[in-house]
């Protein structure tokens, strides 16, 4: 082989490489996008879950908003207090610690307890099912069970048991994505230590609820009588007032609609929820003690 060929080839390739490299180097110098180093640092602090719970497009977007636009620093739910403190430190602001909130599905009407009114045939998605003849559940407030919440959950914390969604509190990262996904607005963010909930969202009158579900709130006000201000009424539906602890846990057994439940007791609860605090009498159930803390 002619030595010239080799020289020409290597020269040409080397030349192309050199030209491109120079062009890239120049481009990097002149076209560089200046990013605020504080934004980068903030992005490092954030957990990178990109869950959208803060209302921004992702962690980087929120980082930019906090640093440049003065957005509230306490919007990152998955990060919890740890991240909040770091953000506060970086921004020179006061951090006000808040208890972690987890998602709870306010419906317990599974396929055995809440009958369906028709056989839905179509896209397996709650929003889609709800738009066809008002949803296939007889109860027009209940969980449809087509998994829209589970599909948006970034941490896989939502499971379906017998056609009704259940959130595992220890897996929940508090992003609220499921709250936005549920077409029936059944999911609420609740302080993690609170374990007694009214798992019904039906605003219908008692007789209608009874026909539609075995575990529905019939508006009897029993919980208000037994546990006082820990519950409040909205029309025919009892709501849990999470600011006030439930003193009398008997209500869980006594609720005629069987829709007041204590969660975390049967499943693996998060450690904060079960550990009795030393200051409280140890004879009391774990739930009540943590209720008392806030």
């Amino acid at each position: 082989m002619d030595i010239n060929n080799i020289l020409i080839t290597s020269g040409a390739i080397g030349g192309v490489g050199l030209t491109c490299g120079t062009a890239l180097a120049l481009a990097a110098k002149f076209l560089a996008v200046k990013e605020d180093p504080r934004v980068e640092a903030m992005d490092e602090i954030l957990p990178g879950a990109n869950c959208g719970g803060c209302g921004f497009a992702g962690c980087a977007d929120y980082a930019k908003a906090v640093v440049l636009d003065g957005a509230a620093i306490n919007l990152c739910a998955p990060g919890g207090n740890e991240v909040l403190e770091l953000i506060a430190e970086a921004m020179g602001q006061e951090a006000s610690a808040e208890e972690k909130r987890v998602a709870v599905v306010m419906c317990a009407g599974d396929s055995e307890k809440a009958p369906r009114k028709h056989l839905y045939n179509g896209v397996a998605d709650c929003t889609a099912a709800a738009a066809v003849a008002g949803g296939d559940k007889l109860c027009k407030y209940g969980c449809l069970g087509y998994g829209s919440c589970a599909r948006v959950c970034p941490s896989g914390a939502i499971e379906f048991k017998n056609g009704v969604a259940i959130v595992h509190p220890d897996l929940c990262i508090s992003c609220s994505a499921c709250v936005r996904a549920c077409p029936r607005n059944l999911i609420k963010m609740v302080p993690v230590s609170k374990t007694i909930h009214v798992v019904c969202s039906s605003k219908d009158k008692g007789p209608i609820v009874k026909k539609a579900c075995q575990v529905g709130c019939i508006g009897c006000r029993m919980c208000l009588k037994l546990a006082g201000d820990a519950f409040e009424m909205e029309g025919f539906l009892a709501l849990r007032n999470y600011d006030i602890p439930v003193e009398n846990e008997l209500i869980v057994e006594k609720c005629p609609g069987k829709c007041i439940v204590k969660c975390g007791a049967s499943e693996a609860p998060s450690p904060e929820a079960t550990e009795p605090t030393p200051s409280e009498p140890s004879t009391e159930p774990a739930e009540a003690t943590t209720e008392g803390q806030t």
Partner: peptide
């Protein structure tokens, strides 16, 4: 196969 209920779709 629930004969008491009707199929509903778009």
């Amino acid at each position: 196969q629930d004969t008491t209920k009707y199929i509903v779709s778009t």
